[in-house]
Design a protein around this nucleic acid. Sequence first.
DNA 1: GTGAAAGCGCTAACAG
DNA 2: CTGTTAGCGCTTTCAC
Lengths: 353, 353
Amino acid sequence: MLVVWDMPKTRRSEHVTLKTIAEATGYSVTTVSRALAGYSDVAERTRKLIVETAEQLGYQPNITARQLRQKRTNTVGLILPTFSPRFSDPFFSELLAGIGNQAALSRYDLLISTQAPGPDELEAYRRIAGGQRVDGLLIVRAREQDPRIKYLQEIGLPFVVFGRSHLDQDYPYVDVNGELGLHVLTKHFIGLGHRRIGYISAPPDLTFAHLRLSGYRRALEESGIGYDERLVVIGDLTRRGGAQAAENLLALDPRPTAIIAANDLMALGVMEALRRKGLEPGKDVAVGGFDGVPESEFASPPLTTMRQPIYEIGQRICQMLIRLINGEHLAERHVLLQPELIVRQSSGQPIPI
Amino acid sequence: MLVVWDMPKTRRSEHVTLKTIAEATGYSVTTVSRALAGYSDVAERTRKLIVETAEQLGYQPNITARQLRQKRTNTVGLILPTFSPRFSDPFFSELLAGIGNQAALSRYDLLISTQAPGPDELEAYRRIAGGQRVDGLLIVRAREQDPRIKYLQEIGLPFVVFGRSHLDQDYPYVDVNGELGLHVLTKHFIGLGHRRIGYISAPPDLTFAHLRLSGYRRALEESGIGYDERLVVIGDLTRRGGAQAAENLLALDPRPTAIIAANDLMALGVMEALRRKGLEPGKDVAVGGFDGVPESEFASPPLTTMRQPIYEIGQRICQMLIRLINGEHLAERHVLLQPELIVRQSSGQPIPI
DNA sequence: GTGAAAGCGCTAACAG
DNA sequence: CTGTTAGCGCTTTCAC
């Protein structure tokens, strides 16, 4: 009987390790390792032979082994709540762009994981951070009482936060002044003659929800208009959520003449809701947002918003994190940026007195 | 002399390992490992003690060590050319959303790396794939002669491609029928009465560039209009690139009455360029795109486009990859989806004969 | 039921 | 200059 000795379909070719090269060249694994690492105490002849052999064999160092040994991964972690920010939130994609490109500059990779919010939230953090898969973590969408910050501080892993939290501890962060931002934005609409300005706030566990809301409130109170809680509803930061919230506001009598949303995505939803009711955004009801995502510019009408430099923030928190990982001192541990008012057509015309 | 024995500022608290637990409980590392892994051959009493101790000490398994040992990472890799697709390309963010959420379903993490295109491109692949940091890779923006596909096939690492390549080898992919897509889209404009239809193509190393271009060409030839290469320019897939390309097309005499771009981002750039010249998109010049990114809907005027289900494609390629990693059989190794024509206002009105 | 021993692939301390 | 030894933290035979 003829046995056909099939070349096994190796799912992956046998891996070339330092040992393979050691055997091929007759040197020890140690020397091979040092030669490839470029140590100066290896004879030039030897180094050359080893390097050439390695190339010939297509050697690639096993990063996992190296990580285990060096206790260093050259990886930055980012864990996303499965909702908010949604992956496909343009806000998030800008942020990720900044983070990713900055990480690449320092030859860091990015480990991204997702985790549904809730009681198990820290699970992912324990797995990734506690499991030593990354050298540091970025925290986005900081919350009032943020267990993630507490946890990372506890285990002593470097991290940088986008946003602020109401904790006693000190931690490095970058944030945009949302209180000021909403104050400026609300004043803008007041300046246009609006007196009934609706506000769609964010989920109250998010720190920025309070800050932005209080900026809105302060502007109204300073202007002698006063704060009316009936004009404030909470949205979930999505477009659909913004539309729903807007419907509630539009059901008021008299209805608001302007609606501000805590983020652009909801503001876009507001415009949808207006249209569905036969109202024209920027004409029948003025609309304002917060973030300055690309869509805000292309919306029709283009959306008035407070721009925050999301891409740059991504770069910055990533850079800060890598510095921390390398034990460098941070010149600025707490960065508070000013958002910029961008007036577009959704502001509409000044209301005649 | 009083020596103050400072508690060292441990950058991270000493790590609890199996050994720690072994010492604390008096059992061996082996037994601890098995107890925590839930093996049945551990005495219930023992198991309980070990599990409780582990919890008390806040044990987290070192994932790196586990990966090294098991030769499995539960991680899917994705390497992005530093340009095209830009991180902040909405197309990419949608895709990532699908990939990420699907990966999470199977409890996989995502390793994202960036690499400037060019001769060193394979470097990143060698590092990540050859370095065994991931169990499989996703390839996006397939090219005519795609060295990445060749390489991964060579080393035998599971991978799935979004797009197709012109290689002899067989490989699993998901793609959208771009030839058909541009045929449909071009016919749409021809149906509206257009005879001079400009086309902004994509960089020719990308496979889809040819497919879409040939769909455009076929539609023109079938309709007896004929293909005029002067009406075709190449753009770099960015908004700015689209605007530049459009300027070239608009300099023609007579200028095209419609302009189709190979992707939405460039089409949005076309609209910008039109406006800068005092022309109104959808009125003076019709505009069409490809992708169906969210911005296309919110553009003004809303953009006619061929929608591809990007999010779902992300899910799908990720799911296919995870199946491959698990050695499962793929029911469909080659998936070709049909894009869907979405007619919006940028199409304009039919041209009177 | 439990433990000893081996080894994943790499690097680093230390000899010589 | 080079090799020996040790060990990162984990899992997996294989004995007992």
